[in-house]
Computed example of a mutant assay.
Amino acid sequence: MPLPDDDHTGSRIREQRRLHHLTQQQLADRVPYSLSLLNQVECGARRALPGLVAAVAQALGVNASDLTGPPAVTSLPPDRLVALVAPIREALDRFDLGPIPDLPAVRPARALAVAADALCQQVRATHLRAAATALPVLLLELTHTVWTAPSTEAWRALASSYRTAHDVALKLDHPDLARIALDRMGWAAGRASDPCIEAVQRYKRATLWRCATSTHLIAAGQALLEGQTSREALAVTGQLHLGLATVAAKQREATAVATHLAAARDLAGRVGGEAGDVHWLSFGQVNVRLHELGASIAMRQFDTALGQARALAVPDTILTSRRARYMVDRALVEMEAGSPKTSLRYLAQARHVAPEQTRHLPGTRTTIRGLVHMSRRAPDSLGGMARWIGL
């Protein structure tokens, strides 16, 4: 079943009506408007006037903004989201202001490097709030350290922490802040003189933008690693090919997708095993297959994606963030195949494994909206899931 591509007030009225287990006739009976008008509004043939929106909101017991808004992408209340993000933004702004004398204490560089790696691990384990809470202090300590006692280790740890800031900001739907964090990562990585970290920064920028410029960014990352044969360099180079496959999939360039997936598959064989320890990229054969699935979804080749998803066994050893992403992708393709119960089951599994990440993944919202549109009356489990993501 194709996904509904409408996102107007009428479509949101339809979603909320179904989530409240009402037919069109039952909702029309509760508002001073005709069934015919309600039907035309829901399908987008007529505009939803303010009076109708207010009446429907009152009948359903929801806020009018839930029907007219852009749809919310996070269930965190705005004040709590700001409380998480604002300190990260402030810490990023201190990057070029020199030492920070008002810090109560600063850990040694080695301890800061260990803490930076631990925060990367927390994000991959999808503990987003914990990572976001600890990140600002770490950024300030590292910023102070690179200005007062610069070292390669400190610069690497700072670049890694900026990368974590990008990941957290993106997962909390702050792409503007994610871009700033990547700029800071590039600044620190250049001073660390670490080509692998610089290449990872190019990869992150490319997958954030996913436009024509992205291929040039990844090519620049590949040039940094040209001729290097270490396990680290091979894994990062392979991830760059996966990034190119992702960009090509968005542009529906199937030949380029196949070429870059083949190159990544070859490099994964040379790396051996799943290189989850290399910059937390989780590069390996499983990750290649996960990107293959993602590419098929991006190109809307859902029959192919369904076969790939059902043939893919994701081991428990894979990072939690990757397993949760697979479950959401699986839910999406099962919904597209007309298997709502299976789709909802995988969404529930993703929520159990990684609730914070699952709540914010765009695929979660897309799948739930699709399931609501498939159902004349949404089951309680689907309604609960929709409320959980703020639909």
Rank of each mutant, 00 (worst) to 15 (best):
L3N: 06
S11I: 10
S11Y: 02
R17W: 06
R17D: 04
T23Y: 01
L37W: 14
L38R: 05
R46M: 11
G51Y: 10
Q58D: 14
L60N: 07
G61L: 02
V62R: 15
S65E: 14
P71R: 15
A83F: 02
E90G: 04
A91S: 12
L92Q: 08
D102Q: 13
V106I: 13
A111D: 13
A111E: 15
A115S: 15
L119A: 01
L140C: 14
T148F: 08
E153R: 14
A154K: 11
R156A: 02
K171T: 04
M185T: 02
V200P: 01
V200I: 14
K204F: 00
A206L: 00
T207I: 15
L224S: 04
L225Y: 03
S230T: 15
L234D: 08
L240N: 01
A256E: 14
A263Y: 00
L267G: 06
G272T: 01
H279Y: 13
V286K: 11
H291G: 01
H291Q: 05
R300N: 12
D303R: 15
A305I: 08
S321K: 13
A324M: 04
L332C: 09
L332K: 08
L332P: 07
S343L: 03
Y346P: 00
L347A: 01
Q349G: 09
V353I: 15
P355C: 03
Q357L: 15
G363S: 05
R365F: 09
T367H: 02
L371E: 02
S381T: 12
